[in-house]
Every structure is written in structure tokens, then in C-alpha cells.
């Protein structure tokens, strides 16, 4: 059975929801990982949850990467382990250098909290293999610093390599300006690393697993990880 670690940093908010969704809704083993842990307790996948780790001091995600557990997370990622960062987790992965680019203040300067339509650009990744190509998903977003930026060369490389996994779209599946909640370049909502084993996105899959809470498209990301692990994670 999938054994997924969920890291709690000081200031994490969504760790409990992630643990709940994994164990109570999806029925897989969820393992809490503490920021001071030196090991990973034998997990086969890791989620860095949303929140405001270390109060977002200096820059969001900048201080969390110095937590003791992050040495193990980086080592796990570099050896091919599956790591998914959601919201603040995405910011941490960028700050840790595991994903390219950075997340800055929303262009509107407003904190956005609403449902967002996404389009799955690739369904051949470890994190989206349970989706169909071009599938529309509805997931909650809630962030003040979710504007994805990268320099021109990096953006070209990310797009060229097909590292963009999900984009913000409107109800018709078009990447319009109006559908872009934060000003992200090319409506980018989530990306993978070149190796395909590290994924970050701003929308909250963990809040959208239980149908009783209104949305359940988020479950597809966790089911994808589960399927990838069942295949032996030979990405």
C-alpha cells in the first residue's frame, strides 16, 4: 500500500487536511513527518502541504528549505522519489531548487480564495496519469503569492520540455487572461522537474478529495501517485 509522508513545518496549515484525505478518504497510509525529523520513516512518496511555513518570513518558502527534514526530502527527490508540493509546498520546492522559477505576489495584490478551472496538459506524468489528456479539473486556490515567474530562457525550456502539467483556464478550457487568478506566466498552475518525479502546483488537491466537501478532482493527483508506485515508479 502507498505510504505517503506529509511534512509539517512551523506554520503549515494544510498538513492535517492532506493526512485526512489520504487516510480517511483515499484509504492509503499517511505518515506525518515533522520538520525536525532526520529520516523519512520509510515513506514511498512525500507531500509538502500548503500554509505559511515560518510565517512566510523573508520570502514564502525560503526558510522551510533549511528545516532538517528537507535534507532527506532533497535526497529522496534526487534519487527519483515522488514529491508533490501544493501551494506553499510549491513555493518551497522552487526555493529549494528542486523546481525552476519562483512564485511572487499575485499581480492583483489580492489574496485569492475561490475555485479555479485547470486544464491537464500532460497525463503521462506520475502525478496526472489518472487524468485524461486535456481534462478540465476544478480545484480550490487560496494564495497571495502564486504568480509563477521565470526568466525567458527558463520559461522556454519549461515549455519546450513539456514540464507544464496544469494551466489555469476558463470554463471553456481556454487560457484567457481573465482565467488567470494571479498573473502567472502562460497561465502556469503547476510544473514538474525535468526528471518528472517532483511536482508543484498552487491549487489545493488535498482540499478536493472528499465529495462531501464539494469538489473531488484533487483525488486524481493522489491516485496517480498511487498508480505510479504500483508500477514501481519507473518514471
Amino acid at each position: 500500500m502507498m505510504r505517503c509522508g506529509v511534512v509539517t513545518f512551523p506554520g503549515s496549515l494544510d498538513d492535517a487536511d492532506t493526512l485526512y484525505s489520504l487516510s480517511e478518504v483515499l484509504g492509503v497510509e499517511a505518515v506525518p513527518l515533522w520538520h525536525k525529523d532526520r529520516g523519512l520513516h520509510g515513506v514511498d512518496s512525500i507531500v509538502l502541504p500548503g500554509g505559511f511555513s515560518y510565517g512566510d518570513y523573508l520570502r514564502s518558502g525560503a526558510l522551510a528549505r533549511f528545516s532538517p527534514v528537507m535534507d532527506s526530502v532533497v535526497e529522496f527527490a534526487n534519487s527519483g522519489g515522488l514529491v508533490m508540493g501544493l501551494c506553499n509546498g510549491f513555493q518551497i520546492l522552487c526555493e529549494a531548487g528542486l523546481l525552476p522559477g519562483a512564485l511572487v505576489r499575485n499581480q492583483s495584490l489580492l489574496f485569492v480564495c475561490r475555485a479555479a478551472h485547470l486544464r491537464v496538459e500532460r497525463n503521462d506524468t506520475a502525478f496526472t496519469n489518472s487524468c485524461s489528456e486535456g481534462e478540465r479539473l476544478l480545484l480550490p486556490i487560496k494564495h497571495g503569492e502564486g504568480c509563477f515567474v521565470a526568466n525567458a530562457d527558463t520559461l522556454e525550456r519549461i515549455e519546450g520540455n513539456g514540464q507544464v502539467v496544469v494551466r489555469y483556464v476558463d470554463e471553456n478550457g481556454e487560457t484567457t487572461q481573465a482565467a488567470n487568478p494571479n498573473g502567472s506566466l502562460n497561465n502556469i498552475a503547476g510544473i514538474v522537474n525535468e526528471a518528472g518525479n517532483v511536482f508543484g502546483m498552487m491549487p489545493h488537491a488535498e482540499h478536493a478529495c472528499d465529495r462531501a466537501l464539494g469538489m473531488d478532482d484533487g483525488a486524481k493527483f493522489f491516485r496517480s501517485i498511487e498508480a505510479q508506485l504500483a508500477r514501481g515508479n519507473a518514471s
Binding site: 523573508l58 520570502r59 526555493e95 525552476p100 522559477g101 519562483a102 515567474v149 521565470a150 526568466n151 527558463t154
Partner: peptide
């Protein structure tokens, strides 16, 4: 290493 993020 910390005070600035070279990307931005």
C-alpha cells in the same frame, strides 16, 4: 544562498 532569490 538565502537573502536574495536569484530568479527574481
Amino acid at each position: 544562498q538565502l537573502l536574495a532569490n536569484g530568479v527574481i
